[in-house]
Write a protein that binds this DNA or RNA. Structure first.
Lengths: 233, 233
DNA sequence: CGCTCTATTGATAAACCTCAAATACAGTGG
DNA sequence: CCACTGTATTTGAGGTTTATCAATAGAGCG
């Protein structure tokens, strides 16, 4: 089952397109629109009419929401093989958040009408999409709970651990998070401030748990972080 | 299109079963399992194998997650016409949270195999389920953002306003929230403590915005609350 | 080398939690 | 009807976490 030969570029194994017959898979890829994003460009913006949904072929997206106070909250980072903006399947919806590439990123997009047609003809697509959204819901609910019950330090620890799962790169000095990630980003992701995050990372660096440079973090002692993240006081 | 005659009991117009031909609608209701829950009984528990999903016919459910520290976090209140545990569609998943009735509640449930069959035969069902889950995701993401950017007072205000939308009952003295709702519940729902919530509600009562009794809140001046909830500092 | 963006650090203050104790209330059994 | 019990709520004092603000240092870029 080598699906790769039938497309011009490789797509990572993913939840949305899993378990499909070769022919359906090819059809879907054919009906999608390829797009290459330069770093820091906007794929779609919160509030725009949601008319297309996207699968990431390569790169990373940052999904954010802007609060009424003008503060940016990071909802999620997405990487290769992840789907976003499934809301485009439904009628007259707006994108609930903004998607921005944080490096050169390739995506494949489908229009609303194409999506609906695909889902009606191939119910597995709809079930797969459901699966993707359910996973996303679970993730946000867990983070909602963490935000309700944990201190900033623990939330930051868990955030770093989550990031190395999707975007970790093994190096000699530890596991590096392979996306540009500022203190501000971590703050926006964990519901904290740059200052608090900076203090926390500094203290962990002193302990030898991490190494940090400008917009770059390497986890030296992941085990220590796991223990810390799971600690119950 | 009177769908009610074909079933023994009435089901509120809802997202999951909308836009279906009469025959499909009837089939679905037929294949469901009716259940009546006494107050404070558990429909399903976080961690159990998710083998059934439910639609609420009448009553209210409280969806909670238990944190590692043993603190209960309320994820959502559900009322008539709402679907829950869509995760049961997927293979080998556990319920990510616990569903408890807060009064006598009637539900209709479908087994995993029935759900899959229904979705494969009638793709609209899958699309409807997707729509339900997307709405849920949007809701939690919004509350995640609020938790990141707003103070407890504003979150409580918004929570009360959300609750009167789904469970509000107009009375002579204002809009009453028609479910037993303790200070502790509000605290668990907003990521605060009973004490802080109690202080906030007391101050609002002094201002004449609300009236409160044991496990019962009536919003007297909804407009004042809206202004307060939207206030940007 | 200046400019801008990121990060650090300290001092201070605000928001909110923790704990203790008192009060109110509903239901129960006598 | 009343005392009793268990829960819900309120209030105060004190402490912790974390935000805010200000000032400085460092890194990258034209």
């Amino acid at each position: 089952m080598d699906k790769m030969n039938s497309t011009t570029t490789e797509i990572k194994e993913n939840e949305f397109l899993k378990n499909l017959p070769q022919k359906q898979y090819d059809d879907i890829i054919q009906s999608g629109i390829q797009k290459i994003l330069k770093p820091k460009s906007i794929l779609f913006r919160q509030g725009e009419a949601a008319n297309r949904c996207y699968l990431i072929k390569k790169g990373h997206l940052k999904l954010t929401k802007l609060s009424e106070q003008g503060k940016e909250v990071i909802i999620r980072y997405l990487s290769d093989g992840e789907l976003t903006a499934a809301v485009a399947v439904l009628n007259n919806k707006e994108y609930p958040l903004t998607a921005e590439s944080i490096e050169t990123t390739e995506v494949i997009g489908w229009d609303k009408s194409t999506l609906i047609r695909m889902m009606k003809n191939m119910p597995d697509i709809a079930i797969n999409a459901l699966s993707v959204v359910l996973e996303r819901l679970d993730n946000v609910q867990n983070r909602y709970m963490e935000l309700c019950t944990q201190r900033v330090e623990q939330r930051v620890a868990r955030t770093l651990l989550r990031l190395i799962k999707t975007s970790g790169l093994k190096t000699s000095g530890g596991i590096c998070i392979d996306i540009p990630l500022s203190r501000q980003n971590i703050a926006d992701y964990t519901g904290a401030t740059v200052f608090t995050v900076s203090r926390i990372l500094s203290s962990w660096e002193k302990l030898g748990w991490i190494k940090s440079e400008r917009e770059k973090i390497t986890i030296v002692d992941a085990h220590a972080l796991v223990i810390f993240a799971d600690k119950i006081e």
